[in-house]
């Protein structure tokens, strides 16, 4: 897959005036809060999109137990997203609530990383994605529990306990499939290969991440890069697989540049609220 060119600001500006009732018309917020708002979207969107991805498995997993695991992990993630996006809506102060942020923003306004929007593929690919993400998210939330933003700290402290389960469960599957039959081994290897190039984005430090870190609000992701690599390597070695070689990374999710996968996730997810705005039970 070639590396894609960045979205030019002028393209984005054109895209944004086209909408008439969607998120594109959101009023601007104060500069200081905008950085925090954007950071909250990153946190919330990662959880929302992966939660939605896992929900696709509901009723389709290889066994009842796995079905429960995936649905429950999805639920945890959507719970995190609810807290982050509700808080983001308060920071934004533009009158759109967490649901509006989830269901009425378009692709360009999503701030999730590429890893979480990757297709489920087979079960091994799903577990490889989960393992690479949850290992990172646990380290991230561990650090965010000390955030100067009390709300972020509270959400992280609440969620980190749940993510611990996600990491354990997915690591166990990486090992079981990697060190399993010829077929499960091949599939896990392919699953890791598929997701590997999306790791560098998790550790990217752009202006927004850097500003949040300098204000004591955001996490310094670079500080746990080594620990992450060590943990991931240990599990892959226990799975008797080889650590994939680094590939050219794809970046841009944090700035609204996504793969085609995201649109396909949003279409069913947002359909109801787009078609029947403000529908309630």
């Amino acid at each position: 897959m070639p590396s894609l060119p960045p979205i030019r600001p002028e393209d984005e500006a054109v895209a944004k005036v086209r909408g008439n009732t969607g998120a594109f018309d959101a009023p601007p917020v104060a500069e200081e809060d905008r950085v925090r708002f954007d950071y909250l979207l990153r946190l919330g969107d990662d959880s929302l999109i992966l939660g939605q991805r896992l929900s696709e498995y509901c009723g389709h997993a290889p066994s009842v137990e796995v079905d429960l695991s995936l649905a429950n992990m999805g639920l945890d993630l959507i719970g995190q997203a609810t807290h982050f996006l509700e808080y983001a809506s308060k920071v934004e102060g533009a009158g759109r609530d967490g649901d509006a942020l989830a269901f009425r923003r378009d692709v360009l306004d999503f701030r999730n990383c590429w890893l979480v929007e990757q297709p489920n593929g087979d079960f091994a690919q799903t577990m490889a994605r989960q393992f690479l993400f949850s290992t990172w998210q646990k380290l991230l939330f561990g650090q965010l529990t000390a955030s100067a933003d009390e709300m972020i700290a509270a959400i992280a402290a609440k969620a980190v306990k749940e993510v611990t389960y996600h990491e354990e469960l997915s690591a166990e599957w990486v090992i079981r499939l990697g060190d399993g039959t010829d077929e499960s081994r091949r599939r896990m290897k392919e699953g890791l290969d598929w997701n590997w190039r999306f790791i560098p984005e998790l550790f990217e430090m752009d202006e927004i991440a850097a500003e949040m870190t300098s204000r004591g609000i955001g996490a310094d992701v670079g500080s746990f890069r080594e620990e992450y690599d060590r943990k991931v390597r240990a599990v892959i070695e226990q799975a008797t697989l080889e650590v994939p070689s680094d590939q050219r990374p794809i970046l841009g999710g944090r700035r609204g540049h996504h793969s085609e996968n995201l649109g396909h996730i949003l279409a069913p997810m947002q359909y109801l609220q787009r078609t029947y705005p403000d529908a309630t039970w």
Binding site: E65, V66, L68, A71, N72, M73, Y165, E168
Partner: peptide, 13 residues
């Protein structure tokens, strides 16, 4: 343990 997750998020099987 049969499954890390049970009938609700707070329970294991």
């Amino acid at each position: 343990e049969i499954s890390r997750f049970g009938s609700t998020p707070c329970k294991a099987q």
